[in-house]
Design a binder for these strands. Structure first.
Lengths: 119, 119
DNA sequence: CTTGAATCTGACACCAGTGTCAGGTTCTAG
DNA sequence: CTAGAACCTGACACTGGTGTCAGATTCAAG
Protein backbone atom coordinates (compact mmCIF):
# COMPACT_ATOMS: atom_id res chain seq x y z
CA UNK A 1 0.00 0.00 0.00
CA UNK A 2 1.04 3.62 -0.42
CA UNK A 3 2.14 5.97 2.29
CA UNK A 4 -1.14 7.85 2.28
CA UNK A 5 -3.16 4.77 3.06
CA UNK A 6 -0.70 3.64 5.70
CA UNK A 7 -0.92 7.04 7.33
CA UNK A 8 -4.70 6.92 7.30
CA UNK A 9 -4.89 3.40 8.67
CA UNK A 10 -2.41 3.97 11.47
CA UNK A 11 -3.21 7.54 12.36
CA UNK A 12 0.46 8.40 11.97
CA UNK A 13 1.41 11.27 9.67
CA UNK A 14 3.22 10.71 6.41
CA UNK A 15 5.95 12.92 7.76
CA UNK A 16 6.47 10.57 10.68
CA UNK A 17 6.42 7.48 8.49
CA UNK A 18 9.22 8.92 6.36
CA UNK A 19 11.09 9.83 9.51
CA UNK A 20 10.76 6.27 10.81
CA UNK A 21 12.40 5.11 7.61
CA UNK A 22 15.39 7.41 8.07
CA UNK A 23 15.73 5.99 11.56
CA UNK A 24 15.80 2.44 10.23
CA UNK A 25 12.52 1.50 11.88
CA UNK A 26 10.46 0.95 8.79
CA UNK A 27 11.42 -0.25 5.36
CA UNK A 28 9.52 -0.04 2.12
CA UNK A 29 9.71 -1.26 -1.42
CA UNK A 30 9.68 1.35 -4.10
CA UNK A 31 7.67 1.59 -7.27
CA UNK A 32 9.68 2.13 -10.46
CA UNK A 33 8.98 5.82 -10.00
CA UNK A 34 10.27 5.90 -6.44
CA UNK A 35 7.02 5.88 -4.47
CA UNK A 36 6.99 3.86 -1.27
CA UNK A 37 5.08 0.59 -1.27
CA UNK A 38 4.32 -1.05 2.06
CA UNK A 39 3.27 -4.61 2.83
CA UNK A 40 0.14 -5.25 4.88
CA UNK A 41 2.06 -6.00 8.06
CA UNK A 42 3.51 -2.49 8.05
CA UNK A 43 0.27 -1.38 9.70
CA UNK A 44 0.93 -3.37 12.86
CA UNK A 45 4.56 -2.40 12.88
CA UNK A 46 3.83 1.31 12.67
CA UNK A 47 1.32 1.08 15.48
CA UNK A 48 3.90 -0.71 17.62
CA UNK A 49 6.51 1.90 16.82
CA UNK A 50 4.12 4.67 17.69
CA UNK A 51 3.29 3.03 21.00
CA UNK A 52 6.96 2.63 21.85
CA UNK A 53 7.64 6.26 21.02
CA UNK A 54 4.74 7.24 23.23
CA UNK A 55 6.28 5.13 25.97
CA UNK A 56 9.35 7.31 25.82
CA UNK A 57 11.73 5.02 23.95
CA UNK A 58 14.08 6.70 21.54
CA UNK A 59 14.62 5.71 17.93
CA UNK A 60 17.82 3.86 18.66
CA UNK A 61 16.28 1.63 21.33
CA UNK A 62 13.28 0.90 19.17
CA UNK A 63 15.57 0.05 16.31
CA UNK A 64 17.41 -2.47 18.47
CA UNK A 65 14.19 -3.81 19.87
CA UNK A 66 12.19 -4.34 16.69
CA UNK A 67 14.00 -7.43 15.38
CA UNK A 68 13.46 -9.11 18.73
CA UNK A 69 9.73 -8.65 18.67
CA UNK A 70 7.26 -11.29 17.70
CA UNK A 71 6.11 -10.19 14.29
CA UNK A 72 2.68 -10.55 12.77
CA UNK A 73 3.74 -13.60 10.81
CA UNK A 74 6.02 -15.70 12.93
CA UNK A 75 8.41 -15.54 15.85
CA UNK A 76 11.09 -12.98 16.49
CA UNK A 77 13.98 -12.93 14.06
CA UNK A 78 16.51 -12.18 16.78
CA UNK A 79 17.10 -12.62 20.47
CA UNK A 80 17.98 -9.67 22.65
CA UNK A 81 21.56 -9.49 23.84
CA UNK A 82 22.20 -9.28 27.60
CA UNK A 83 23.12 -5.65 27.16
CA UNK A 84 19.85 -4.91 25.42
CA UNK A 85 17.89 -6.89 27.99
CA UNK A 86 19.37 -4.72 30.71
CA UNK A 87 18.35 -1.59 28.83
CA UNK A 88 14.88 -2.86 28.17
CA UNK A 89 14.42 -3.89 31.78
CA UNK A 90 15.27 -0.36 32.82
CA UNK A 91 12.80 0.99 30.28
CA UNK A 92 10.20 -1.45 31.53
CA UNK A 93 10.60 -0.22 35.08
CA UNK A 94 10.45 3.37 33.93
CA UNK A 95 7.23 2.63 32.08
CA UNK A 96 5.86 1.00 35.21
CA UNK A 97 6.52 4.14 37.19
CA UNK A 98 5.02 6.20 34.40
CA UNK A 99 1.84 4.16 34.52
CA UNK A 100 1.60 4.61 38.26
CA UNK A 101 2.04 8.36 37.85
CA UNK A 102 -0.59 8.50 35.15
CA UNK A 103 -3.07 6.64 37.30
CA UNK A 104 -2.53 9.13 40.10
CA UNK A 105 -3.04 12.01 37.71
CA UNK A 106 -6.15 10.42 36.31
CA UNK A 107 -7.51 9.99 39.82
CA UNK A 108 -6.75 13.63 40.53
CA UNK A 109 -8.68 14.71 37.47
CA UNK A 110 -11.56 12.42 38.30
CA UNK A 111 -11.75 13.94 41.75
CA UNK A 112 -11.96 17.47 40.39
CA UNK A 113 -14.46 16.50 37.73
CA UNK A 114 -16.62 14.69 40.25
CA UNK A 115 -16.49 17.61 42.67
CA UNK A 116 -17.75 19.89 39.92
CA UNK A 117 -20.50 17.44 38.93
CA UNK A 118 -21.78 17.32 42.50
CA UNK A 119 -21.84 21.09 42.83
CA UNK B 1 12.08 25.17 53.87
CA UNK B 2 14.56 26.32 51.25
CA UNK B 3 14.56 25.44 47.58
CA UNK B 4 17.44 23.02 47.95
CA UNK B 5 15.62 20.89 50.48
CA UNK B 6 12.41 21.02 48.48
CA UNK B 7 14.31 19.86 45.42
CA UNK B 8 15.89 17.01 47.34
CA UNK B 9 12.65 15.89 48.92
CA UNK B 10 10.64 15.97 45.70
CA UNK B 11 13.27 14.88 43.25
CA UNK B 12 12.50 17.93 41.14
CA UNK B 13 15.38 20.21 40.16
CA UNK B 14 15.73 23.70 41.56
CA UNK B 15 15.55 24.94 38.02
CA UNK B 16 12.14 23.39 37.59
CA UNK B 17 10.86 24.71 40.90
CA UNK B 18 11.74 28.24 39.85
CA UNK B 19 10.11 27.62 36.51
CA UNK B 20 6.94 26.44 38.21
CA UNK B 21 6.87 29.73 40.06
CA UNK B 22 7.07 31.77 36.87
CA UNK B 23 4.15 29.72 35.56
CA UNK B 24 2.07 30.53 38.61
CA UNK B 25 2.01 26.95 39.85
CA UNK B 26 3.99 27.38 43.01
CA UNK B 27 4.30 30.33 45.35
CA UNK B 28 6.84 31.01 48.03
CA UNK B 29 7.51 33.42 50.80
CA UNK B 30 10.80 35.23 50.66
CA UNK B 31 13.39 35.80 53.34
CA UNK B 32 14.46 39.42 53.86
CA UNK B 33 17.34 38.67 51.53
CA UNK B 34 15.13 37.32 48.78
CA UNK B 35 15.59 33.58 49.21
CA UNK B 36 12.52 31.41 48.68
CA UNK B 37 10.90 29.86 51.73
CA UNK B 38 8.40 27.07 51.22
CA UNK B 39 5.78 25.67 53.59
CA UNK B 40 5.69 21.96 54.33
CA UNK B 41 2.75 21.33 52.00
CA UNK B 42 4.79 22.52 49.04
CA UNK B 43 6.25 19.01 48.91
CA UNK B 44 2.94 17.40 48.05
CA UNK B 45 2.09 20.15 45.64
CA UNK B 46 5.32 19.85 43.71
CA UNK B 47 4.89 16.11 43.41
CA UNK B 48 1.37 16.62 42.08
CA UNK B 49 2.60 19.20 39.59
CA UNK B 50 5.33 16.87 38.42
CA UNK B 51 2.85 14.05 37.95
CA UNK B 52 0.53 16.26 35.96
CA UNK B 53 3.38 17.41 33.75
CA UNK B 54 4.34 13.79 33.21
CA UNK B 55 0.75 13.13 32.25
CA UNK B 56 1.12 15.61 29.44
CA UNK B 57 -0.77 18.56 30.88
CA UNK B 58 0.62 21.96 30.05
CA UNK B 59 1.37 24.71 32.54
CA UNK B 60 -1.79 26.61 31.79
CA UNK B 61 -4.07 23.63 32.42
CA UNK B 62 -2.28 22.75 35.62
CA UNK B 63 -2.57 26.34 36.75
CA UNK B 64 -6.32 26.24 36.23
CA UNK B 65 -6.59 22.85 37.85
CA UNK B 66 -4.57 23.39 41.01
CA UNK B 67 -7.09 25.54 42.93
CA UNK B 68 -9.74 22.90 42.32
CA UNK B 69 -7.71 20.12 43.85
CA UNK B 70 -8.19 18.81 47.34
CA UNK B 71 -5.21 20.19 49.19
CA UNK B 72 -3.26 18.56 51.98
CA UNK B 73 -5.10 20.54 54.60
CA UNK B 74 -8.73 20.85 53.59
CA UNK B 75 -11.05 20.76 50.62
CA UNK B 76 -10.58 22.46 47.29
CA UNK B 77 -10.62 26.23 47.29
CA UNK B 78 -12.48 26.39 44.00
CA UNK B 79 -14.83 24.41 41.82
CA UNK B 80 -14.02 23.76 38.20
CA UNK B 81 -16.06 25.70 35.67
CA UNK B 82 -17.98 23.75 33.03
CA UNK B 83 -15.41 24.82 30.46
CA UNK B 84 -12.57 23.49 32.60
CA UNK B 85 -14.45 20.29 33.32
CA UNK B 86 -14.76 19.70 29.59
CA UNK B 87 -11.03 20.24 29.14
CA UNK B 88 -10.14 18.01 32.04
CA UNK B 89 -12.45 15.28 30.80
CA UNK B 90 -10.65 15.35 27.47
CA UNK B 91 -7.33 15.16 29.29
CA UNK B 92 -8.62 12.31 31.39
CA UNK B 93 -9.57 10.34 28.31
CA UNK B 94 -6.23 11.08 26.71
CA UNK B 95 -4.49 9.81 29.84
CA UNK B 96 -6.61 6.69 29.72
CA UNK B 97 -5.45 6.00 26.18
CA UNK B 98 -1.90 6.75 27.20
CA UNK B 99 -2.10 4.19 30.00
CA UNK B 100 -3.45 1.59 27.61
CA UNK B 101 -0.60 2.30 25.20
CA UNK B 102 1.96 2.07 27.95
CA UNK B 103 0.62 -1.26 29.09
CA UNK B 104 0.91 -2.60 25.56
CA UNK B 105 4.48 -1.35 25.32
CA UNK B 106 5.33 -2.84 28.68
CA UNK B 107 3.91 -6.16 27.55
CA UNK B 108 5.98 -5.94 24.40
CA UNK B 109 9.14 -5.38 26.41
CA UNK B 110 8.26 -8.18 28.80
CA UNK B 111 7.85 -10.52 25.88
CA UNK B 112 11.26 -9.68 24.47
CA UNK B 113 12.91 -9.88 27.87
CA UNK B 114 11.27 -13.20 28.59
CA UNK B 115 12.27 -14.60 25.21
CA UNK B 116 15.88 -13.70 25.95
CA UNK B 117 15.70 -15.19 29.43
CA UNK B 118 14.45 -18.51 28.04
CA UNK B 119 17.17 -18.65 25.42
C1' DC C 1 34.36 39.30 60.50
C1' DT C 2 35.18 35.63 57.45
C1' DT C 3 34.32 32.09 54.51
C1' DG C 4 32.14 28.55 52.02
C1' DA C 5 27.69 26.80 50.88
C1' DA C 6 23.33 28.02 49.16
C1' DT C 7 20.50 30.95 46.59
C1' DC C 8 19.33 34.68 43.34
C1' DT C 9 18.31 36.36 38.28
C1' DG C 10 18.94 36.12 33.47
C1' DA C 11 20.34 34.04 29.37
C1' DC C 12 21.44 30.49 26.08
C1' DA C 13 20.92 25.75 24.39
C1' DC C 14 18.89 21.48 23.86
C1' DC C 15 16.08 17.54 22.65
C1' DA C 16 13.87 14.73 18.96
C1' DG C 17 9.86 13.92 16.95
C1' DT C 18 6.64 16.43 14.24
C1' DG C 19 4.35 20.29 11.23
C1' DT C 20 4.78 22.64 7.18
C1' DC C 21 6.26 24.60 2.94
C1' DA C 22 8.53 24.65 -1.70
C1' DG C 23 9.42 22.85 -6.02
C1' DG C 24 9.42 18.95 -8.67
C1' DT C 25 7.95 14.07 -10.16
C1' DT C 26 4.85 10.09 -10.49
C1' DC C 27 0.57 7.93 -10.71
C1' DT C 28 -4.07 7.04 -12.38
C1' DA C 29 -8.70 7.93 -13.94
C1' DG C 30 -11.13 9.82 -17.81
C1' DC D 1 -2.93 12.83 -23.71
C1' DT D 2 -4.26 15.36 -19.67
C1' DA D 3 -5.51 17.00 -15.30
C1' DG D 4 -5.47 16.50 -10.60
C1' DA D 5 -4.31 13.79 -6.78
C1' DA D 6 -0.61 11.63 -4.50
C1' DC D 7 4.11 11.30 -3.61
C1' DC D 8 9.13 12.62 -3.61
C1' DT D 9 13.28 15.14 -1.19
C1' DG D 10 15.14 18.72 1.46
C1' DA D 11 14.94 22.35 4.58
C1' DC D 12 13.39 25.23 8.32
C1' DA D 13 10.89 25.90 12.67
C1' DC D 14 8.75 24.69 16.72
C1' DT D 15 7.72 23.04 21.18
C1' DG D 16 8.27 23.82 26.30
C1' DG D 17 10.13 21.93 30.15
C1' DT D 18 14.78 21.32 31.61
C1' DG D 19 20.18 21.59 31.97
C1' DT D 20 23.70 24.63 32.60
C1' DC D 21 26.56 28.54 33.14
C1' DA D 22 27.87 33.32 34.78
C1' DG D 23 28.11 36.72 38.00
C1' DA D 24 26.23 38.62 42.09
C1' DT D 25 24.01 38.24 46.67
C1' DT D 26 22.57 36.03 51.00
C1' DC D 27 22.87 32.83 54.67
C1' DA D 28 24.90 30.54 58.57
C1' DA D 29 28.63 28.43 61.03
C1' DG D 30 33.22 29.21 63.09
Amino acid sequence: MRIGELARRTGVSERSLRYYETQGLLSSDRTPGGHRDYPERAVDRVIRIQELYAAGLHSEKIRQLLPCMRDGDGGPSAIATPRLVADLTAERDRIDRMIADLIRSRDTLDEVIEAAREA
